[in-house]
Design a protein around this nucleic acid. Structure first.
Lengths: 287, 287
DNA sequence: CGGCGCCATACCGCCCGGGTATGACGAGAG
DNA sequence: CTCTCGTCATACCCGGGCGGTATGGCGCCG
């Protein structure tokens, strides 16, 4: 199978529509139809069921979509890292990616401590939207990432645990519920008049639901301050809490684990020393 | 980058010789030369240094070889698993791979216990040469594997630890060294007249050294019995020890960890239940 | 029942990947 | 110093395949 075929397949699978997929790929519809048919013949299995409105995946198609995405990311990573190998004759800089607004205190400490190391190399920090960090690590755009269980998919990475914390509910100051000393998740997410905001999925669309659609932490906190929402977050988010906000522990929420993650078989000495610094600084239990 | 280009590059890199690589790929030399040159142009970096005798990798080339191998394996895995998804309409059978002769007792227990489970599916056991298990898992020929640290590269897999054990020296019965109650690695591998056998590397070639070249456990034990060799092995290999052999603990040898490993994002329910059975049966400390 | 939306088929042209023949170039032998 | 050999690169040709346009088949819906 060629990566071109894989790209075509993934486009059609994601759009569920040959015409739109062709447009996205910058080509005409018929050759794409033919390429998909050829792929199905070569694989020896139907990948789509042709419905009168678009196409949907078969079981085999779902397998290929899941595995093919990581495979394609691996190929892109190989190409990207090869390019970067030659670009810099000196010590290779390290690209670190993290979710904008999360673990900022921890990252500041890490970067300060690392810069003081004798073997430190340049660290380029890339703040990307929630959920994109793992993708960037998989396709070679980043060398190392700060990720959070259970939100990010850590599978396939080597990781070191940096921190484990509980979650809290952030809600408008003065709201009756803010007088509680502790809440359950069920209680926290069903307070009348304070719906849970919705975050965009990886493809930019929003899940269905009653809450407002939001894109970053600042927006959320502003909305909470206005008495229009409440949100459950790791307690390290307290550092962002100023006037107008109240915080209540959520007793039964999943613990959030902050990890530093890097691709297996990484040979970058910069990544290795950065990870070493992180483990020395934080080195939390493996919970 | 297309997988075809990647295959070509890997062939040339491994052979360090365009002519031989072309032969191995079943094509003529000139188009292969051209393909490599095109790849270098597209990547924007020299991958080889042209020497009068063959070609050697640059730094960028080494990166592409390392990352490209896993990427290519991922693409092949995607294709293979897609084929296998459709092949069987019923519950999907599971392919388990393990090193021939290793952990046989543990595997027997596991397979017996699993077969008795209510949700058990067919398990196809593939015994392959040492070191090939991880490859098979990476390229989709197997769904789950029994691996051994520190010998196998576990990076990128999800694992459960099943067993941790020390290593012992197996030597001819009656040999003076067999009267020792314990040996160090240095002592065990430098007994006059008892060289350590050499095992083939993944590509089938042998490392340099004084010991005999061998291919499987039976050969080794026979040679030891004949007084021509001695070998350090995990102590579970004692079950293979019969007349004519002696066993001495090796105090400072690395502990051997037996794990069950599977690809991340595996969705096979068969793999999941097999792993569950294994953890329940053995569930060793995570040392 | 007509029109529409969507995918498949038919057919064509051109690019590119593969083949053969040959050149360039450095190493080593004499 | 030169001849030869080994190795990779270049030149050139050919054919398959990929992408393009035009059009057909076929459910759905109005």
């Amino acid at each position: 199978m060629e990566t071109r075929e894989l790209r075509y397949f993934i486009a059609v699978a994601e759009e569920a529509h040959v015409g739109r997929a062709a447009e996205r790929l910058g080509m005409a519809q018929p050759p794409l139809s033919r390429a998909i048919a050829q792929l199905e013949r070569r694989i020896g299995a139907d990948l789509f069921v042709r419905a009168p409105r678009g196409m949907t995946l078969t079981l085999a198609g779902e397998t290929l979509l899941r595995e093919g995405r990581t495979a394609l990311a691996a190929v892109e990573a190989a190409e990207r890292r090869t390019r970067r190998t030659v670009a810099t004759p000196g010590p290779a800089p390290v690209v670190l990616t993290a979710k904008a607004g999360a673990s900022s205190e921890l990252m500041a400490k890490l970067l300060d401590a690392y810069a003081a190391e004798p073997d430190a190399v340049d660290v380029e920090v890339v703040l990307s939207p929630p959920g994109h960090q793992a993708l960037m690590l998989r396709d070679g755009r980043a060398d190392v990432a700060i990720l959070h269980r259970p939100f990010d998919d850590l599978s396939g990475f080597d990781v070191d645990v940096l921190n484990v914390e509980d979650q809290v509910l952030i809600l408008p100051a003065g709201h009756p519920a803010s007088r509680a000393t502790s809440l359950t998740v069920a209680e926290a997410t069903s307070i009348p008049g304070l719906p849970t905001p919705r975050w965009p999925r990886l493809d930019g669309t929003y899940p269905e639901g009653p809450g407002p659609e939001l894109r970053d932490l600042t927006q959320v906190l502003q909305l909470v301050r206005l008495g229009r929402a409440a949100i459950v977050m790791p307690e390290s988010a307290r550092v962002n809490v100023r006037d107008g906000l109240a915080v209540v522990p959520v007793s039964d929420a999943a613990q959030v684990t902050t990890v530093i993650a890097w691709p297996p078989q990484s040979v970058s000495s910069g990544v290795a020393s950065l990870v070493r610094t992180a483990s020395r600084l934080f080195d939390a239990p493996r919970a």
